[in-house]
């Protein structure tokens, strides 16, 4: 029997496909803004990246990213879910798997594919047949009590992001309490605060992805 050693396998990671990371969360929580904030950070790190967006019946988010100047337009593909957004990231993610496969075939070698769900509710989760890791984005203006409601998206995501942290005092939210309650319902899984408009907290998001799925550091 041929036994392979770690040395034989060194560098063989290229045989594996690009990391696939899902980004879910309610409408308007900042999923696309998060991607826009992450793109320059990953570009600076030399990460080869592509994006799949999901919208209900348009290509709105894909076109926004293609026009952004932050990424080559051919690196962005839009999927029109045509139904509840979670159906194409969980129950039957075929459309998104095909889109990711297409990007990978056309742009090889890729390090990372971000798959943005259409805006959904707190029950939204990703199939692990589609992604290796997923983020859930909520924002303070949705209410400080959101983490306490223990939606599956909040509890099960690999990384929870509480966006628009700067708005907390304007919408009557105790940000420290919201963060603490989020950490309590997630049993130690990470929670990060961000302000995607200013970029605050995004370095830490990139660090998590780099460590957990890009296998850096």
């Amino acid at each position: 029997m041929a036994v392979e050693t770690a040395q034989d396998l060194a560098g063989a990671t290229a045989a594996a496909s690009a990391a696939r990371v899902g980004i879910g969360g309610p409408v308007g929580s900042g999923k696309t803004a998060l991607i826009e904030g992450l793109l320059p950070l990953f570009a600076a790190r030399g990460t080869s990246l592509a994006i799949v967006t999901n919208d209900l019946v348009t290509q709105e988010d894909a076109e926004r990213l293609q026009r952004s100047g932050l990424i080559s337009p051919e690196r962005v593909v839009g999927v029109e879910a045509g139904a509840c957004p979670h159906t194409v990231i969980r129950e039957d993610p075929t459309l998104n798997i095909e889109a990711a496969d297409l990007l990978e075939d056309q742009l090889r070698p890729l390090d990372l594919i971000l798959i943005e769900s259409g805006g959904d509710n707190l029950a939204s989760t990703f199939s692990l047949d589609l992604v290796d890791y997923w983020l859930f984005v909520i924002d303070v203006s949705g209410g400080g009590d959101i983490p306490r409601k223990r939606g599956p998206g909040i509890v099960r995501a690999d990384l929870l992001i509480v966006n628009k942290s700067d708005l907390a005092p304007h919408v009557g939210v105790d940000l420290a309490l919201m963060q603490r309650e989020a950490e309590e319902v997630r049993n130690g899984r990470p929670v990060l605060l961000t302000n995607c408009r200013t970029g605050e907290g995004l370095d830490r998001v990139a660090d998590h992805l780099a460590h957990d799925v890009l296998m850096e550091g």
Binding site: A16, A19, R20, L128, D129, D132, Y133, M215
Partner: peptide
């Protein structure tokens, strides 16, 4: 069991 579907994990 659910995590065995992942293709990448640390």
């Amino acid at each position: 069991a659910a995590d065995t579907a992942r293709k990448r994990l640390r």
